[in-house]
């Protein structure tokens, strides 16, 4: 197992090289650059000014040289400076990462705490009204764009309850939990709800499969309570495939966070990322891409490890 994890970690190195190179090249293919952004604010610049600005940002060098230098800084954990604010990327991101992280974790929590119970209920009451309602909800959640639900909630709340998106600035959960949740709870529920459809369906399928097994019949015939049979005997084994779905939903959560932060004006990484793309703030865009792909890569690895941990029959070599 340790060997397997080590090999997976080593394989991440070429993957990250390829990925960052791809991002690097794509960014240089974008129409316009930082100079056009600055020009838009301060009027046109002649060729000499333009060259001076590019030189200042070290964007005048050949792309391969820029990449090598960037990698050189990356391995020393130096993410560079924002071209717009001049502050270091670490500083810029350090205030925003916790916001998005909280949003993502709340969403994941909501996803699991809604998805798994409804999935179980659907399975143990198979083909009942409860089951049909649960399944309809699941396929509905899978098809509804999260931002659409967000827009409808905002418009209905505004129309009937005179409630507007709170313009409160972000405060840490530990500082003022009430104000924090006022801003983040609804977006997190929408974000988590989108993924919970998949979790419901997977839990239901896995439960149905497990409930047909012999050892469950044994548990019933021993006269155990339904509660014990379902939660202690069946659920444990049924959760194995569910863990995979939850892990694989993390990349979607990252993309979803970008959208939901935009809709609810949440000052997280996603919203900052979009503005950095618009202003050609390349160091920020590159750093966010590296960060999010690391999240994806480690989520995949975590899924594989938990999978073998929960199911000892699976052994990686």
């Amino acid at each position: 197992m340790q060997k397997y994890i080590l090999r997976r970690l080593l394989l991440m190195v070429p993957t990250m090289f390829g990925l960052t190179l791809l991002v690097f090249v794509m960014l240089r293919l974008l129409p316009g650059d930082i100079v056009t952004v600055i020009q838009g604010e301060f009027g046109s610049a002649d060729k000499a000014t333009r060259d001076a600005i590019l030189k200042d940002f070290q964007l005048d060098e050949a792309v391969p040289i820029q990449y090598v230098k960037w990698v050189g800084r990356m391995v020393r954990f130096d993410l560079g400076k924002s071209l717009i604010s001049g502050r270091s990327v670490q500083d810029e991101l350090s205030t925003r990462v916790p916001v998005t992280l909280e949003l993502g974790l709340l969403a994941l929590l909501f996803n699991i705490s809604v998805g798994i119970p409804i999935g179980i209920l659907s399975a143990i009451r198979q083909n009942s009204a409860v089951d049909y309602a649960g399944r309809t909800l699941a396929v509905g959640l899978l098809a509804a764009p999260g931002f659409w639900i967000a827009l409808i909630i905002i418009s209905m709340a505004g129309r009937y309850f005179q409630w507007a998106v709170p313009s409160t600035t972000y405060v840490s959960l530990f500082e003022d939990p009430f104000r924090n949740l006022k801003l983040l709870l609804v977006p997190a529920m929408i974000l988590g709800g989108a993924g919970s459809g998949g979790v419901m369906r997977f839990t239901r399928t896995a439960m149905l499969e497990v409930l047909r097994q012999d050892y469950i019949r044994t548990a019933w015939s021993k006269g155990l309570q339904e509660r014990t049979v379902i939660l202690r005997h069946a659920l444990k084994n049924a959760l194995i495939p569910v863990v995979t779905v939850i892990g694989l939903s993390i990349p979607g959560l990252v993309g979803g966070a970008v959208i939901i932060e935009q809709v609810y004006s949440i000052p997280g990484v996603g919203r900052y990322y979009l503005s950095a793309v618009n202003t050609h703030d390349l160091p920020i865009v590159q750093a966010v891409n590296v960060m999010t792909s690391l999240v994806v890569v480690f989520a995949n690895l975590a899924v594989d490890i938990t999978y073998s941990w929960l199911n000892p029959r699976i052994r990686y070599s």
Binding site: G18, L30, S293
Partner: peptide
């Protein structure tokens, strides 16, 4: 290994750049 890169790409975040870069070309 090339496929590994594709799987590690954070979907929407990356596609935003690629679509813009390709659209003008």
């Amino acid at each position: 290994r090339i496929i590994d890169i594709g799987i590690a790409i954070p979907g929407l975040v990356f596609i935003i750049i690629v679509v813009q870069a390709l659209a003008t070309r």
